[in-house]
Design a protein around this nucleic acid. Structure first.
Lengths: 129, 129
DNA sequence: AATAACACCGATCAATAATCGGTTTTTGTG
DNA sequence: CACAAAAACCGATTATTGATCGGTGTTATT
C-alpha cells in the first residue's frame, strides 16, 4: 500500500486525537497547509477505502477513527517493503542484520527485552495448547 | 523513495548476476514480461538516477551494477517508512514491538545473536576511540 | 563507407494522490 | 413547514511517477 503525504499527515492527526470529523481535521491543518475542506474530505474517504479509518455518523457528520494504530501500520509497511524483496518468512530477520548496525546500547537493551517478552508469549501459548 | 514493479524485478536480477547490460536484462525478462528493450533501458536509467545502480561503458554499451546490496536497500526502505511516522530516533525500536509478535523461537534466537554481535561492535568502537 | 548495436530524447499511457467546484442531502431553527 | 446552514457526495482537473516505445543520433567493427 502506498500513502500520500496528506494521507500520512491526516493519519498522524487522528492517532493523536483518537477521532475527528472533516471540520476538525480541516481546521487543524489550516495553519500548515492550504488544503480546502473538500480536499480533506476526499483524503479521509481515501483512507476509509484503504481500511485505515472507520467512520460513524454523529448527527449528519461522519466521525472518522483510525482502525489500525501507528505501530501496527508501521509494522505492516515494514513487512510489505521487506516481502517485496525477500518473500521468504525469514526475510525480516535477515533485513534486521543491516538495520542492527545503527542501534546504540540502550536501544539494543530495549530490543532484547522485547525479544524476551515474545519468548514468554510463545511459551505461554505452548502451555495453553 | 518509491520503486515500481519492474524496477524491483530488475534490481533483483542484478543482485543475482552482480552486473549486466541492457541486452542481458532484457533477455532475462523475455519469458516473463513483454517489456521491450527500450522499456528496460529506461528502467535502468531510472534506477541509475535513483543512485541504486552504477554503470561503466564497456565497448559502447553500459554495464550496470547495483550500488547498494539487497539488505541495505531493505534497511533503507524500512527506515524510510518508519521515519514517515516516527521521526524520533527510537521510532524503529518502537516499531519493532509490533513486529516482534510474529517471530518464532528460532527467529528470536537469530535476532538475539545479531544484537549480541552489534554490542560487540559498539564495545570495539569504544576501545579504539 | 555500411551496418549493427546501443544510448538518448521525447512522447504517450496508466495509476494514484491532491485539489476543488457544484449539487444533493440532512438538520436545526424561526 | 420552509429555509438556511452544514455536510456529504459526485465529478472533473491537475500533478507526479512509473511503464512503455518510436525514432534518431552515436559509436564501433568490418
Amino acid at each position: 500500500m502506498n500513502l500520500g503525504e496528506l494521507e500520512k499527515l491526516v493519519l498522524q492527526y487522528l492517532w493523536e486525537c483518537e477521532s475527528g470529523d472533516v471540520k476538525q481535521v480541516h481546521s487543524h491543518f489550516k495553519s500548515t497547509r492550504t488544503s480546502s475542506i473538500n480536499t480533506i474530505q476526499s483524503t479521509l474517504e481515501r483512507l476509509y477505502k484503504k481500511k485505515l479509518l472507520s467512520r460513524v455518523k454523529t448527527g449528519h457528520a461522519y466521525t472518522y477513527q483510525p482502525i489500525v494504530d501507528k505501530q501496527d501500520l508501521i509494522a505492516k509497511l515494514i513487512k510489505s517493503v521487506t516481502r517485496d524483496f525477500e518473500p521468504d518468512e525469514n526475510g525480516l530477520v535477515a533485513a534486521f542484520s543491516s538495520l542492527s548496525k545503527e542501534f546504540n546500547a540502550t536501544q539494543l537493551d530495549k530490543l532484547e527485552s522485547m525479544i524476551e517478552k515474545q519468548r514468554q508469549n510463545l511459551n505461554q501459548g505452548e502451555i495453553n495448547d
